[in-house]
Write a protein that binds this DNA or RNA. Structure first.
Lengths: 342, 342
DNA sequence: AACAAAGATGGTAGCGCTACCAAATTGGCG
DNA sequence: CGCCAATTTGGTAGCGCTACCATCTTTGTT
């Protein structure tokens, strides 16, 4: 006869301990915790008392094993420090904090291969739902998502062919709106400056190009891109490059607000008047854009709300009532500010 | 006779399937995966072939249940969008991505109660290690950490009384260094502007106060704080308040770089010369501070490195060789820039 | 009052994996 | 050549929980 719980570390209470103390069967404790309405009020009280007294916390691993379903949301984003994704993730966390679901966060570093690896890993946990950033998964990733056997929400972007559900907006339309605004404001030699040209940035660039071509203003020399990760200092450097290439530049649409801020600072430093000589438009509308001097026109996107909606849709799907709308376009807003007011 | 695997979702391969295919015992497969050197080369090869062919991925839940130890690092931070913690978290993720450990991330929202709740929750998973931000845990949280039965690393700050291990730096010294620098540069009416006065901000304030008192310059009216979450726009507003309160203000030490940036923009807007009329020092040294115009003096902290070191120490402790140094002070650097060069 | 239906509770048998021990094989050495 | 130790492999018995079914109540219906 071996010692009963030699292997378990601290001998923390199990469901059997609770059941014994409450004078009921283990399964009843399990039910009282998961579907209280199926247990009489009286037993529920007794069980709760035993739980409190023992400080019982269910073991999620045992739970997942027994039910073949972990109470985990797998979340895949390409970056943890990019404020944009941080806000999406925050929306997801906030929406899930009151639920029993945990979050398994993965950082793909903008790599398709890493995404596949993480999906493989997440799949082994049988998550309750998967939330992934973007719509450009590799074929292998797409297959993994389709066979995940759980609701899948692609976020940040909308597109024609969802794996399951989608919440986002059109980056192409955003890029076009930003560019059209510059054109309407009277700018003509409008540059595009973009770092880390991920698929979303590419589509913003496509929107820029569409607007420029429609106005007969497109010139490939106006486009400056790099695969390097975006930063404020990079924005400054790229702006200098762009200006060296096209000295007549009179406006820039920046891939994101970090770049835009770098451009703004360089304008200050080089005594280039904004918006008079150069108009600036950013993307995402971080808090600081409206505080900057001059304040910077930007495309406001609803990152936090995207996170919330993604969770809401996934939870609805888990509960069995899939939303009638598979694709939710949360749109964007052009925030007109001083940097383009000439 | 019930169907053998009716409950399991997609009938994914189990260790038994691999064992059968490789013609070995299940336990040998388990060993080949976890401690390959204890299995003969030949069997190892056979097993690997079977794993590849079946696409077997071990179930982490079953693993955790059987071994009473989950391959999970619990990580608790007060904010997900604050760039500072995002970088720590990134350091942690990057250091752990090649290991079998997953990460369970919790957001305490700067709340001690929420921290307790999350520690309770994390404890139920028997994590391999815990990394928590800060050193000011509530007594209940501290008890949970002490009885977690795994390595614990407190990060971001150092202090005299670690639960287990610590990686960080002294916020008090940082605040003092920033303030002394302003004093040396010739500023006299130096304000402190601080939002979200968490314990680390409090200690930066204490450092400011110590430096000011030592120079005989302290005046409580110079201190402007709020518990509101920090942002660039809040920095602007608080600076206006501070200036209204003390019109002779000639310098500010800001709790963090967001606030400093808000101050800088307001100076531009109100045509206040920096560094001539007002000197500005920030805290953390985000990338943009050196690009700003004028560039902003700040205290550089090593967030990413803190994350990496925390993981390295935890991994060492798990492997059985605890680092001889329990408390690692990674220090900080005062980055002198244009905003205080007068 | 008799009987079916619905509700409440419990027992049993795993979920997929690993700790623990036992067995089989090999090698070294007197 | 025999014996013990080291190495390699496998069997058994759970880890803590829940799905599934069985049992026992309670309630509703005619």
């Amino acid at each position: 006869m071996t010692k009963p719980r030699s292997r378990r570390g601290g001998g923390r209470p199990t469901i059997a301990d609770v059941a014994r103390k409450a004078g009921v069967g283990a399964i009843t404790v399990s039910r009282a915790l998961r579907e209280p309405e199926r247990v009489s009020v009286e037993l529920r009280r007794q069980i709760q008392a035993a739980v409190d007294e023992l400080g019982y916390v269910p073991d999620p691993n045992a739970r997942a094993l027994a039910s073949a379903r972990a109470e985990v949301f797998g979340v895949l984003v390409p970056s943890l420090t990019n404020n944009v994704f941080a806000e999406v993730v925050r929306g997801i966390y906030d929406s899930l904090s009151a639920s029993p679901f945990r979050i398994q966060l993965g950082n793909t570093h903008y790599s398709g291969l890493e995404e596949e690896r993480l999906l493989q890993l997440f799949g082994s946990q049988r998550p309750a739902a998967l939330i992934v950033a973007g719509i450009d998964q590799t074929p292998a990733s797409r297959k993994l998502l389709e066979s995940a056997g759980c609701p899948v929400v692609q976020v940040m972007e909308t597109g024609p062919d969802p794996v399951d559900m989608m919440v986002g907006f059109s980056h192409l339309d955003g890029g076009r709106a930003a560019t059209e605004h510059l054109i309407e404001a009277g700018y003509r030699r409008i540059g595009f400056i973009g770092a880390r040209m991920d698929p979303r940035s590419q589509r913003r660039l496509a929107g820029y190009r569409a607007a420029m071509e429609a106005a007969g203003l497109f010139d490939p020399r106006l486009v400056t891109t790099t695969p390097v990760l975006s930063s404020v200092s990079l924005g400054r450097e790229m702006f200098r490059d762009a200006l060296a290439k096209v000295p007549t530049l009179d406006g820039v649409f920046c891939n994101n607000d970090d770049i835009a801020l770098g451009v703004l600072f360089e304008c200050h430093r080089a005594s280039i008047a904004v918006p008079k000589t150069i108009g600036i438009v950013g993307f995402n509308d971080l808090d600081m854009m409206q505080v900057a001097f001059p304040s910077v026109t930007s495309i406001r996107t609803h990152r936090y709300e995207i996170g919330r909606r993604a969770v809401a849709m996934a939870l609805a799907a888990i509960a069995g009532n899939r939303p009638e709308q598979q694709i939710v376009d949360l749109g964007f807003e052009l925030k007109r500010r001083e940097s383009t007011a000439r």
